[in-house]
Amino acid sequence: MRLMAVRTSARLRRGLSTLDALLPVLSVAAALGVWELVSRTGLISERDLPAMSTCVRALWHLLETGTFWHELLLTVRGWALGLAVATVLAVPIGIVLGSSDLAGRAFRVPIEFLRPIPSAALIPLLFLTLGTNLKSEIFLAAFGAFWPLLVQTMYGVRDLDPVALDTARSFGLGPVERLYRITLPSTVPYIATGLRISSTVSLILAFTAELFMGIPGLGQAVNVAGAFGLTDQLYALALATGFLGVAIHIVSKAVERRALRWHPSQRRAAA
């Protein structure tokens, strides 16, 4: 009896894991199907929302043009530079604010004030200051990406194990060595989470800057397509941006897995 129960549960588990793999495919297919239907049945007019198949075909044509790839690269550049600037600033500042109680308390109010400001609210200011160029795009992306990284790094440093630090001190490691032998590696999991959140934020804001400020890139292309009523291209570009987001997510997940082989959250995969 028990043996049979075990066997059934094994079969059930195998069945479930196939279902696990199939589930995302099914949900995507369902969403695309609904899109196609909504448009074809005229629930939303085809002029406002062209059918899914039309948009995919438009995307296919876009992929064959050099302009599209150029715009994609520009957006990727804005994303990467924004994220890089945010990281270079947020990690050291986070370490300082996390390790010193005094600094943490001193800057808590300004941080809590600046953090919830929607980055898009800075666009008018950027028009007046940096102007319509890459600098504004990077500034906007970096501003948005800065906060999650900062907060994550601060939490990571605060969560540092005092025993680990005592150990390092007892072996005569100075403050600088403690920083890069103990503090940084133990904070890496938090920074990785921050990076994952911030990379999405950075992409959204690079795109937003292009869309609203007319800085060259996918965002500007969407704006142009909208202005000329090329709705199929507009949705095709939106799809492309979505795929870009997925690609960035997959890459950052893979990087995280490699960097955190030792971390409990990744251990099963490593063993």
Binding site: V163, A164, T167, F171, L173, R181, W262, H263
Partner: peptide
């Protein structure tokens, strides 16, 4: 010093070799 909490006193992100090497680096 040898602490009671070995799991907190050892560095999980690196090998046994590097853990033992820690006090020798400087």
């Amino acid at each position: 010093l040898v602490f009671q909490d070995y799991s907190r006193s050892l560095m999980p992100w690196t090998s046994v070799r590097n853990n033992v090497l820690l006090p020798l680096r400087h």
